[in-house]
Design a protein around this nucleic acid. Structure first.
Lengths: 348, 348
DNA sequence: TTGAAAGCGCTAACAG
DNA sequence: CTGTTAGCGCTTTCAA
């Protein structure tokens, strides 16, 4: 049992050196597998044993001070709480960091500008090697200026002048893929319930919807578009509205899984079945919603994990090669969304 | 604009001292509002200006090395991804830490023992002042021994010998409150769909259920208990089973919101309405589920945010007063669950 | 092959 | 009131 009173000092390198009968230098070389130091196996053995014996553990703070590398990455996010997507981004980021033995210093600023500013300061003081600035849905952000003291990558957001590298989902191809899933099953009257908020996802998915129609030579019909709030209520109302049309759609592409859930409710109230009467496709692949609906919802998965991963990987590159050519035009990366096929789309 | 090339060295205290024409000590005293150093306002002014002018920022690593305080708390969690509850615990923990200007070093070990071990090592090397060990649902855990080198608090879990302080939800009173909500509306035949997994929540809520019945002098009927998987499927099947009884229940207490969602589905298939034919109460207050069901689900909220907060607050106490009397019997704290009333309970 | 020594940026006891 | 000085634990150059 390694239990040790919290008050006693932890063993330092000198302690190991003393016990092994060598100098601190030697200990350092051995424990770090120093590249060109040629220390005889026997001495190495002795040092390692001594270290193990007294339970020596390197002090990353001291090492960090000396080598000015904190092995730490800051992760700032707005509202972590509500979205399960947050977890996936963090997980992706952490996994990528873990591979390089870096740890994430997490701060959730909950939409508070002042806190955001302080968070960046605190991270900078702690000498983070870089910062990931993440938001819980794809949108435009303004970043505190001091953040530029250190390499930074924007995750699921972007800034006005694109002066910082960013990674976001490809909303256009996402909307297109979703719509094509319907078109492939011979649906031709496809409703689109869009989010009323003026966000990139709304514009992008709408564009993708139109692209898909065009690709299949289906004329665009304004009547089939309905713009509502992106929650269950919105979906329910929007769906009812669409189904009241003289020529109602045989399929509906919903901006979000919540809206799809609302559509299910509306359809049920109208005694229409999914997918036989109306096919439905959602967006988000909400783990808690999509698979549990009856029938399970076909929907688009957002690449949150991958984006988180990419963000850190890219950040690590920037850290290792700060003078990379990127300075003038930081990369704005997009990840494709993938179709998750379940049972809410039937053949027309 | 504070932009600065990433390669140039950051200004240090000496730079400030030089510019202000004083010694490093003075700078340190001024910038830290040193308690007993009586530095004339004028000098202070000069120092502060100098610091601002060159964009000085204290180096927390150096400070940490010197004062052996990292101002950092480790937060280890199993599977952050799937559960939205995770976010609430983290948020609570962070908010409590933030108040003391501490930051969280986050590692999600995803059920991997080896990774867990390494995570603790990495955190200890980084001199975290303490560690929160969190799980995404209330259960028994075994903790890597080295964690005891530093104050530790278990969040939403506990260890066999209770040798570490922990905070968990009070499952018994939770189950009792839920059941009483039904009893208060004059329901007397109350079904209980329990989780088949042998976890504290299952045993505790069942006990609470029985306590409530007893308090209302309602005889316990084994037939009304049904043990299923805690997902939507389980809830659906269990509910059908209960409703097939010769004397079916007029109300059902479900172990989880997912199960309640399944119950809704089953009831709908049986052409029974909630809450008129059958009242339903869930557990978890899943933000994404409970309010969006039709009718909105009355359910028990788990105190995740509060537990996260408490965990850090308690940890900070342990850090500040390591020799507190707690050594022999670490506190095992419980937080009450609260009833969230929506529309799934009707008067009998 | 190993050790001495300098120093990362900061704090704080001690002098002056 | 302010400066000198001695480290915190580690890395790494240089010399032996």
């Amino acid at each position: 049992m390694i239990k040790r009173s919290q008050k006693t000092k932890r063993p330092s390198m000198s302690d190991v050196a003393r016990l092994a009968g060598v100098s601190r230098t030697t200990v350092s070389f051995v424990l770090n597998n120093a590249p060109h130091a040629n220390i005889p196996p026997e001495t190495q053995e002795r040092v390692r044993n001594a270290a193990a014996q007294i339970g020596y553990r390197p002090n990353a703070i001291a090492r960090g001070l000396r080598s000015s590398q904190s092995q730490t990455i800051g992760f700032i996010s707005d509202e972590i709480v509500t979205s399960p997507h947050a977890g996936q981004m963090i997980q992706g980021a952490q996994d990528a960091a873990w591979k390089e033995q870096k740890l994430l210093l997490l701060v959730n600023i909950d939409g508070n500008r002042e806190m955001e500013h302080m968070a960046v300061d605190l991270m900078l003081e702690r000498q983070v090697e870089g910062i990931i600035y993440a938001t819980m849905y794809h949108h435009l952000v303004t970043i505190p200026e001091q953040i530029r003291e250190v390499p930074t990558v924007l995750l699921d957001c972007f800034c006005q002048d694109r002066s910082l590298p960013s990674v976001v989902p490809d909303e256009v191809t996402g909307g297109q893929t979703a719509t094509e899933a319907l078109l492939k099953q011979d649906h031709r009257r496809i409703g689109f319930m869009n989010n009323e908020d003026p966000i990139p996802a709304a514009a992008g998915r709408f564009e993708g919807y139109k692209n898909a129609l065009e690709a299949y030579n289906v004329p665009f019909d304004e009547a089939l578009i309905c713009t509502v709030s992106s929650d269950t209520q919105g979906g329910r109302q929007g769906c009812k509205q669409l189904m009241q049309l003289a020529e109602p759609p045989s399929a509906i592409f919903c901006f979000s899984d919540f809206m799809a859930m609302g559509a299910y409710q509306a359809l049920r109230e109208l005694h229409l079945s999914v997918p036989d009467d109306v096919a439905v496709v959602g967006f988000d692949n909400h783990e808690l919603i999509a698979p549990t609906l009856v029938p399970p919802l076909t929907t688009m998965a957002l690449p949150h994990y991958e984006m988180g991963q990419w963000a850190v990987e890219h950040l690590l590159k920037l850290i290792d090669f700060p003078e990379s050519s990127e300075e003038e035009s930081p990369i704005q990366h997009k990840f494709e969304c993938t179709l998750i096929e379940r049972e809410s789309i039937g053949r027309r």
